[in-house]
């Protein structure tokens, strides 16, 4: 559970760090909104995939540790 929370916080931190960069891209207004919009769509789907993947990894790690404990017995 703490792992999940950690992953979520990490994702939030990455988002917070990367956002000013994204908003500073381009000077032309039209290209800026277009480019930024695409960036945001990519970022949104990346966040979705990364977080779900994080959950999968946390489940897998738990499974591994449980299996090790079972072998140990």
């Amino acid at each position: 559970m703490t792992k999940i929370i950690r992953t979520c916080l990490l994702a939030a931190a990455i988002l917070a760090i990367s956002s000013p960069e994204l908003s500073a891209q381009g000077t032309d207004l039209a290209s800026q909104t277009l480019g930024r919009a695409y960036w945001h769509v990519f970022a949104a789907y990346a966040i979705g995939w990364i977080l779900v993947l994080g959950w999968v990894i946390s489940i897998a790690r738990r499974l591994v540790s449980v299996e090790q404990a079972m072998k140990g017995n």
């Binding site: 999940i4 979520c8 949104a44 979705g48 779900v52």
Partner: peptide
Amino acid sequence: MVFCTIMILT
């Protein structure tokens, strides 16, 4: 919580 985080970040 995972999906709630996705929603809040997107």
